[in-house]
């Protein structure tokens, strides 16, 4: 398995069970969510980073967007284990394409992958997660987290997909998002519960949903 990884001298991501990410490092580095290290052997050095975006501009963007995620760089020889509040971990291989992920759901990436922020429009607002999502781009592996194992759903021209904003974790590929209203609540007592939002994905790509819903202000379906 994965000799390619060693030849390219990038950190090897593997899952230890479904909730722990083990990364084997030979002098290389990974970026990981601050404080997510649960154990390591060998020699490791930790460095705090400003955030997903690079340099000053990234920092300013962070300020503006209010995205709170802090990232650390871990570098060394040995194995480092990462986990975060017993979240399920899903590995994503990127081959030049772009992954959009809620910043709180990003656990770790190859140091070689570029991370940035992207405007998500209304979805972010409806989730109370800020208006921006983290993007991960390049060639390499990323580990994303979900509350319960994520289900990966394919979106194609004949199969558009509708997702509850609270269950959305990440997506990749060439997808368009739009909002649609979900349920109409008219109850016996006439308490109008208002309407719930759903996100509709069209195009070609993959959507990661989790078997759980964050609290949203979008309403429940």
């Amino acid at each position: 398995m994965g000799t390619a990884g060693y030849l390219r001298c990038v950190a090897m991501f593997r899952l230890q069970g479904s909730k722990v990410l083990a990364v084997d490092m030979t002098g290389d580095a990974v970026k990981a969510k601050n404080g997510s290290m649960v154990a390591y052997d060998g020699q490791m050095a930790f460095k705090k980073m400003s955030g997903g975006g690079e340099g000053l501009r990234g920092m300013v963007t962070r300020r503006l967007t209010g995205e709170q995620m802090t990232v650390m760089e871990v570098k060394g020889h040995g194995t480092c284990w990462f986990a975060d509040r017993a979240s399920e971990i899903n590995l994503v291989n990127l081959q030049g394409d772009k992954l959009y992920v809620e910043s709180s759901n990003l656990l770790a990436t190859d140091a070689g992958l570029r991370t940035g922020t992207s405007f998500t429009g209304m979805r972010g607002a409806s989730q109370g997660n800020g208006l921006f999502t983290t993007t991960v781009e390049g060639h390499g592996q990323a580990a994303i987290m979900s509350d319960g194992p994520a289900v990966v759903l394919r979106v194609s021209s004949q199969y558009p997909l509708t997702v509850d904003p609270g269950a959305y974790v990440a997506h990749q590929g060439n997808l368009r998002q739009s909002f649609q209203s979900g349920v109409t609540f008219r109850t016996l007592m006439g308490e109008g519960g208002g309407e719930a939002f759903q996100i509709r994905f069209e195009g070609d790509g993959l959507v990661y949903v989790q078997p759980s819903e964050r609290n949203t202000i979008a309403g429940d379906v």
Partner: peptide, 9 residues
């Protein structure tokens, strides 16, 4: 051996 959990909680 040490037993480690998948959480900092």
């Amino acid at each position: 051996a040490v037993y480690v959990q998948a959480s900092e909680e």
